[in-house]
Every structure is written in structure tokens, then in C-alpha cells.
Nucleic acid binder design. Structure first.
Lengths: 371, 371
DNA sequence: TCAATAAATGACACCGGTTTCCTAATGGGG
DNA sequence: CCCCATTAGGAAACCGGTGTCATTTATTGA
């Protein structure tokens, strides 16, 4: 890829080419019982394997006719270069890794989908690798993963992406990586960020605008940066509207359905009962629904609920959930694109900050408070 | 792996080993600026790379002391064999593929999780590959996927797994594969099946036992084998209880939430209105919930609803959904284990049929009909 | 004491690509 | 007409492991 720089002129040649055509045609009748290699192509084309290699790698130093012949033979015998051998010679694997320890299946699937879309376009394949930050082998495990497969790059999803030790391991390994996070941490160049502040602030304005004053908030687990972002932005925006979130109106959940139920039970059995609850993600919002229904609290008449993520469950719930759309698929695509560009252009570090914003989606679960 | 068969005796040797120990210790102070290779290990151990290779591959033909030394050096310099080079020489990739075209994210994630668990234990990595059966490039795309990455094996998830052309492609490629399906199709050896009949029959008995007679059924899309299985088993079991499903009480959905809403609307606006609806999966059951709520029909008082899959949404819904548990994670694990065993033992075809059964889970959405 | 035997190890080619370096042919300028 | 620049292509080494086969050394039986 680094050699065989662009030529300045081009002078076609003849002679060998015409003869080869015949050979090639003759060769096609010949069937191989194993996958064809570059040597087979070279032999059939009466050319050295290096020339075939040049064709494969789009080197400009190949006569147009020769190239045509070789391409025809490649086409006819169905030759495909072995990524193993290529990787060995190139010192590259054409493999990207996706490291995640996120319990939210939908988020992962969406991310994965976006990543795969970008991979597909660039000829990369994706190796997925779930892990567990709480495991003592976590770091070693991640290290082995990257080293063993010789990954060209790794995409790390939160909350694993927010683990500084993991980042250090990746850097030590010299492995290019892109992190997804709710905030741009220490290194903007290696990150794709999603702006949760925007969405959370919109929710605050929405609730304030509807006239809610007794507002409950279910925060995410503190190890997630997104939890901080959503909380701070929400609280701050409420304050701008002259509303102060009382401490007892804030509960910390774990981004799970069950924790949503638990937190909602606490909030809804307090006096004064909140007229609106903002849960930091849709899963917990679903827990709030269930709790409210169990307690005979009507949604949205007696309780406005807002979630975050716009996962499929938001529309499955009844009434449908007002939430904040987090474009996970776009995030995945952006991350992969960023990584692939960096790999292909051989840059050590990217320079542009990349990110997406989250916007509120108003549905049926948010209405003005009663009375 | 095929050479270096087991020895008949063992006679320890001395002499060189003691000297090597010193060399090894001395060598450790030497730091490399690139990932260590087998050559580095060999040089430091004053041994040929072949011997190191023997140690790596657990060949019994290595002197115990030599092995110890080499292992120590490997440990100390952090050497890990390159899977690329290994794969090239072995003609193997240690990579498994997961091919899916299933829109149900949760199902895929669960399968993937099970597959990964098995992969991890056996030292394989997983390359995921979503695809689209409706695309004209579908088969070619799958072929390229397998060939390019030299996959050791592929796991195919329904409905793609039920595409005979895809199976033919895989077979032609000589690629080992395991298919997941609701029924054992033409080749039990290459399949992991889940028995949907059991669960569907249990639902029929459950509904009949509760006293329901006007029962609506939302079938899955006919291209899914599982749709047939669930339908036939349900209808048959109902008949055993003297209940005939009238044609107008059957609607065909697409396994999606939206199609569930559409089908439910049709069913619930007919006379006589069914007192129970069995949806062929939970997503569609969620659509039934939404429709019932929109129409002011109380669940479960006025309408019993049963789903299939036991996906997370079953417990998110209110009241919680009676459904059939399909152990997707186990399915994935079983498939991967089966595949890995076949790869490792170099069997062409497996011989044991593998499968899981589905069982009903009764929750709050199913009660006797009113009156 | 001398094969014969067996364990332990090494030399070398190979897997399927790539890079480096070199040669041959062509055409233009002096 | 010769030399050089330039293009097209090839030979050999290499990437990091493997298989095959030969070689070395020690033990054993005759």
C-alpha cells in the first residue's frame, strides 16, 4: 500500500496479452478442488504473483491489458484474497472489535447495527466482545481480545468506555480505538459523544411549561457519565425555570426495569406526591408505569412520565412514552467511520470531534398536572 | 495437531536445560518495542521455533525442563501466538460467524450472548453478520462473508436458517454450520431445534382450561417455520379440547408490534368478540395490549392475552403477560458448542440431535372469561 | 561393545499474501 | 546513435506460525 506510488505517464504495451487471453479461456475449463489462491491466478495469467498482487491492490503500475486479463481470470475462477495471509503480510487484520458491558440489549443492537453498516462499506468485519467491568479479569481479558485477534481498531461502548484503565490498556497496546460517551472526556479525538444535556434540558422545559412543580427524578447509576449528564442538565434547566428539585424527590436507579419500579415506589408513596416523574432511561420509565398502575395511579391523568433513549418500549407502553431520542445507530456508524478513517489514513489520532445530539420526542405520557 | 503423536515412553534429559535457565533470566531484562513473536521466544530460549511451536500446541514430545523454560519465557515477555499466522498455517481461523436476518433484537442479543459464552470457553471469537434475505445479493453476500474470513463455522439463525439456498451455499463452501430452527428440517445433525409445539399446546390447554371458547389467534409470518409450528400445535391442541378456531378468528401478523396492533384491531372489532387472544410472539401481544387499551377493553378482565418468547417486554407490560419461554441464550450456547465440537473433532457431520423445549409461563394477563 | 530403538529437537519448505530490490523494454533528448 | 528516464514486471525474502523429515543423543538388548 505504501509502495508503487502513482506513475507520471502511462504507456500501453502489447505482445504477451493476446496470448494470455487464450490461456485464460483454456484455463477456465479447469476446475480446482480447493479455494483458488493468488498463485493459481498468476499461473493461469502467466504472470508473477506480484503482478496479481498489484492488480488486487489497485497499483497503477500495471498495463491496462494485463490488468483486464487478470481481473477476468479472478472473476472466472472466483478468486478472493485470503484475509489471513493479507493480514499477516500487511500486519493488519481488517477486523474491528466492539467492546461492551452494557445491560441494555437494545442499545447494543442499535450500536452494532450502525457499526456494521460502516464496516460493510469499508470491507471490515466486526468481532463482538461483551465483558464485565466487575470481573477481576476484565482488563486482561480485553487485552487478550485485542492482541489475539490483532484488531485494527476497537469501539468501546459506555460504561466500559468510561473506564480509564481500559483506555490505558488500549493505548499501551497501540490499538486504535474510538470511545462512545455522553461527554467528551480527556481526549476528544478518540471519541464520539452524544449530547444528553440537550435532551434532558428539553424535558425540564417541557415539564415546567406544562405546569409541573412537584417533579420526581430517577437518576441513572453514578458510574455512567450519561447519568451525571442527564441529571445535571435536568436539574440545572429546572432551576432556570425557578424550580428546585428537592433531594427527597431524587432516587438513584440502575438503568434497569426493576430499579425503576423500586424508585417509583419510593417517589409515589411520598407526600406531596410528584405530578411528574422523569426517569433517566426508558427501562426505568417502564418500571414507573408498572408501579403507577399497581398503585392505581392513572397515566397521564395523575402522573406524567418521561423517559430517555426512545427505545422500542417507549411506543409499546400505553400511553406511549414521552422520551428523548438517542440515535444509537448513528452513534455506532459514526464511531466506526471515524475509526476506519483513522486506520486507513494511518493517522495516529483523529482531530475532529464527532457527536450527535439528543432531542425530546413528545408522546402521550406527558400532560399538564391535574387541577 | 495431526503430527507429533503421543510418545510411548519418557526419558528426561539434562545438560542444556540448566544453561538455558540463565540465558532466559538474562533475556528478560531485554525489552522489545514490538509484539514478541515465536522467533523471539525461540532465540531467548536457545531453541528452534519448532520446539516453541510444540510447546504452544501441547505436543508431548518436549522435554519437561525445556517446556518449563519456554513457558517461563513466554510468560515473561508476554508472548501470544498470532491467530493470523496460526490460521494461515493451520488453514483455520478460529472464527465463528453468526448470520441473522431477524428483526427481533432481543432474540438476537440473547442468542449472541449464548454463542459468545461458548466461544469464550473454547477460544473462538465471533464475527456477526446481519443480512437481508430479500436482497438480491443475499446469497453472494453470505458466501463472501464465509470465504473472506475463512470462518471455521457458521451459526445461522431463523428465518435465514430456513433458507435452503443458503444452506446449499454453505455446504458447497465446505463450511461447517449449525442451524437454529423451530423444526428439525432435512438434516438433524446440523441443527439445534426448539420445540414450539410444546409451549403452544400448553397455551391451548391453559386457555381451554380457563373456560375460553371464543379465542382469537394471531399467527406469525408464514416464511417462519416457527409460525407454522405454533399455529398447528395451538390449533391441534384446541381441537383436542373440542374447540375449533374459526377462520375469521385467525389473523396473520409479521411478528412486529405494528402488525399485532393491526391484527388485534380486526379481531376485537368482530362479533362475537374473542375473550382471549393468543399472539404468536410477545411483540405482537404488545400490539394487542395497545389496541385493547385504545378500544377501552380491560386486560385481563375483558380480554385474556397470551404471547410467545418471554422477551423482556412480557414483564414490562401491565398486567404482565402470560407467555411461553423460549430459552434463546441456551439455544445460542448449544449451537456454538455443537459447532465447536464438530470443528475440533474434525467431524464432517454431527450425529446427535440437539434441542430445547419451550414451556408456558403463566402471569397476570390470562384469567377466566367474564360471566 | 555395538547396533537398535526411542525421545527430543532442528532444518527446511510451506500457508497466501506483501515488500524490497532488480531487470527489461521503451521512448525521448542531446 | 547513445544514454537515461520511465514503465512494466519478476525473483526472493518476509510476515509468524505450521508440517515433514532428518538428526542428535541416550537407553536398551544382544
Amino acid at each position: 500500500m505504501t509502495q508503487d506510488a502513482a506513475p507520471r505517464k502511462g504507456r500501453p504495451r502489447r505482445g504477451r496479452a493476446a496470448a494470455i487471453q487464450t490461456v485464460a479461456v483454456e484455463a477456465v475449463t479447469w476446475t480446482l478442488d480447493r479455494p483458488p489462491t493468488i498463485n493459481d491466478v498468476a499461473r493461469l495469467a502467466h504472470v508473477s504473483k506480484k503482478t496479481v498482487s498489484r492488480v488486487i491492490n489497485q497499483s497503477p503500475f500495471v498495463n491496462e491489458e494485463t490488468r483486464t486479463i487478470i481481473n477476468a481470470i479472478i472473476e472466472q475462477i472466483g478468486y478472493m484474497p485470503s484475509p489471513q495471509a493479507r493480514g499477516l503480510a500487511f500486519q493488519r487484520s481488517f477486523l474491528l472489535g466492539l467492546v461492551y458491558d452494557n445491560p441494555n440489549a437494545q442499545f447494543i443492537v442499535n450500536i452494532q447495527e450502525g457499526v456494521l453498516a460502516a464496516c460493510r462499506l469499508a470491507g471490515f468485519e466486526l468481532v463482538v466482545h461483551p465483558c464485565d467491568q466487575k470481573s477481576p479479569h476484565f482488563l486482561n481479558d480485553a487485552k487478550q481480545f485485542v492482541q489475539r485477534q490483532n484488531l485494527d481498531g476497537v469501539i468501546v461502548v459506555p460504561p466500559a468506555s468510561e473506564n480509564p484503565q481500559l483506555v490505558e490498556v488500549l493505548r499501551d497496546l497501540g490499538c486504535r480505538y474510538v470511545r462512545l460517551s455522553a461527554v467528551s472526556l480527556d481526549e476528544a479525538a478518540n471519541m464520539v459523544v452524544y449530547n444528553d444535556r440537550q435532551g434532558a434540558a428539553e424535558v425540564a422545559e417541557h415539564l415546567a411549561g406544562l405546569g409541573h412543580r412537584d417533579i420526581g427524578f430517577i437518576a441513572g447509576p453514578s458510574r455512567h457519565r450519561s447519568a451525571h449528564e442527564r441529571r445535571e442538565s435536568f436539574v440545572g434547566a429546572l432551576r432556570n425555570h425557578g424550580i428546585t428539585l428537592r433531594p427527597e424527590m431524587v432516587e438513584e436507579g440502575a438503568y434497569t426495569f426493576e430499579s425503576g419500579e423500586v424508585c417509583a415506589t419510593r417517589l409515589l408513596t411520598r407526600e406531596p406526591r410528584p405530578t411528574a416523574i422523569f426517569a433517566s432511561n426508558d427501562e426505568m420509565a417502564a418500571g414507573v408505569y408498572k408501579t403507577a398502575q399497581r398503585l392505581g395511579i392513572s397515566i397521564p391523568r395523575d402522573l406524567t412520565i418521561v423517559g430517555f433513549d426512545d427505545s422500542p418500549i417507549a411506543t409499546r407502553l400505553w400511553p406511549s412514552l414521552t422520551t428523548v431520542r438517542l440515535p444509537a445507530k448513528d452513534l455506532g456508524r459514526l464511531a466506526a467511520e471515524k475509526l476506519i478513517i483513522r486506520i486507513s489514513s494511518d493517522e495516529e489520532e483523529g482531530h475532529t470531534a464527532t457527536g450527535v445530539v439528543s432531542r425530546m420526542v413528545v408522546r402521550e405520557s406527558s400532560v399538564p398536572p391535574r387541577g
